[in-house]
Design a protein around this nucleic acid. Sequence first.
DNA 1: GTGCTTGCAAATCGTTTGCAATAGC
DNA 2: GCTATTGCAAACGATTTGCAAGCAC
Lengths: 136, 136
Amino acid sequence: MNNSYNYLLEHNVKPSMQRMSIMKYLLTHKNHPTADDIYNELSKRMPTLSKTTVYNTLKILSDSKACLALTLDEKNIHYDGDTSLHGHFLCKDCNKIIDIPLNEISLLRNESSEFTVDSVEISFYGYCSNCEKKRI
Amino acid sequence: MNNSYNYLLEHNVKPSMQRMSIMKYLLTHKNHPTADDIYNELSKRMPTLSKTTVYNTLKILSDSKACLALTLDEKNIHYDGDTSLHGHFLCKDCNKIIDIPLNEISLLRNESSEFTVDSVEISFYGYCSNCEKKRI
DNA sequence: GTGCTTGCAAATCGTTTGCAATAGC
DNA sequence: GCTATTGCAAACGATTTGCAAGCAC
């Protein structure tokens, strides 16, 4: 899938070399990378890439819903090129993040799956009625 | 409710003046404070309280499930003395965090409520099968 | 007095900011 | 040329760490 160019356009993000590379990385790597992960990988092939650009781009992409910014790990923001509705499991020991299809959630809450779930956090983002008014 | 002493014992946390004050604050303030919020409030009456102690204590309390550590706001960790299963709404403009009873979730996803929901994050915490083995 | 708790100061580190250089229309 | 993008270096700020002092049993 080399269509990061079109993918960006569809999300109203003006394409550039840097933005396409970062978007392509997110679309082809489902390992929930951090800004640093992406920078380290891409700068191997793009030595002039700057970390600031990675941060800027990831902000633009997540604001445009071209990717998700996951906050479940309090240390780092992780990014996910899969914007469909699904859950995430964070292992407190190895810090790996694993995708959880939503229809498995009931299983997980019964602790009958391959994970031991300690706690759940369900977060909604948007605008409250007050701020929504101000935006119009 | 002055039973922060018993509440700590029930959660296997050895009580101390500082820990009781912080626990009491969480049990009586449902505004999802940060470590800094709690420090600023409590240090008015406990001038010798240190921010390190607030951080240490909040870590102990959340590890012991005496409170929740919310990561939905990427800037700060917010704490919640209400450990029952419920969701949270974060307004991207005013940054207020609002409790969401779980039975309202379906309403929110239809955007028929008082909030405009842009995105949802469902996070599970625990131990993956690999790490669970190592712990035993 | 032994071990846990507290608190100060300093360090850490992911992220942001200021601003000059560059690229694209 | 004008505007947006990029990139370097410096700043920021929430959280953590090292360690000495205090407290409790």
